[in-house]
């Protein structure tokens, strides 16, 4: 008899725990999605200012790229009346013969990115002027996913500080806009084994077969 009532009590207790145990789950708010992809990043309205994209971007600074370019400003030559703008697509023979335009596999030519009339500027697809310092506005027209990563820090390189002022390396600091593929090169010296010990003979790993 005693045993029976004990059992009932235990059963009731168990049920209570089971029922009320769910309350916290019911009350819990639905957690926000892990992905906080800034979807409203690209403006849906027509803007005449290529910089308007920066409105939705955490602020950053950058080093002036134009100081680094040897022949900048371009208008030193191109401002001359002897050198009238020529929009015809052709192979350049004299001054810029050294420029190999590999980028785009023949889809582009100079005036795709450089302004015809304002030589000290780049030019957007919508024919807006873009400074040489702000190449990211130009490149991002095609490479918009990269551009977003660049703005938010997943692509490119931050300089100096992780806190406060955010200074970024712009696209052209690493990528040659005409030949964008980064060349391979020698790595820094191979690590040594502990002093006094001999390195192991090189392991020739069986090449990994995908299948």
């Amino acid at each position: 008899m005693l045993l029976k009532s004990w059992r009932i009590k235990a059963g009731a207790f168990f049920l209570t725990v089971l029922l009320f145990g769910f309350i916290p789950f019911a009350l819990a708010e639905e957690s926000p999605s892990i992905r906080s992809d800034p979807e409203d990043f690209y403006p849906s309205f027509q803007s005449d200012d290529p910089r308007s994209i920066l409105l939705n971007v955490p602020s950053f600074t950058y080093d002036k790229r134009s100081d680094e370019i040897d022949s900048y400003p371009c208008t030193t030559c191109h401002g001359d009346e002897d050198l009238p703008p020529n929009p015809r697509v052709r192979d350049l023979e004299e001054m810029h013969a050294g420029v190999m335009l590999v980028h785009g596999n023949g889809r582009f030519w100079c005036l795709t990115c450089h302004s015809l009339n304002k030589r000290d500027y780049l030019v957007s697809l919508k024919n807006q002027l873009i400074s040489f310092d702000e190449s990211f506005l130009l490149c991002g027209q095609c490479h918009y996913e990269r551009q977003k990563d660049f703005f938010f820090g997943a692509h490119g390189k931050r300089k100096d500080n992780w806190i406060l002022e955010r200074k970024l390396a712009v696209c052209t600091e690493c990528h040659n806009p005409h030949v964008t593929k980064i060349k391979s090169r020698r790595p820094v010296a191979t690590p040594q084994v502990r002093k006094g010990l001999k390195p192991m003979k090189r392991i020739v790993h069986e090449k990994h077969k995908i299948w």
Partner: peptide
């Protein structure tokens, strides 16, 4: 991070929801 020539490295404060590291981890 500063020595990396390819920008492969992202460093920052995990507790700052607006930090670059958080952007990488979440996206």
């Amino acid at each position: 991070h500063q020595a990396c020539p390819t920008g492969a490295r992202v460093f920052g404060n995990l507790l700052d929801v607006n930090s670059e590291i958080r952007y990488v981890l979440e996206n």
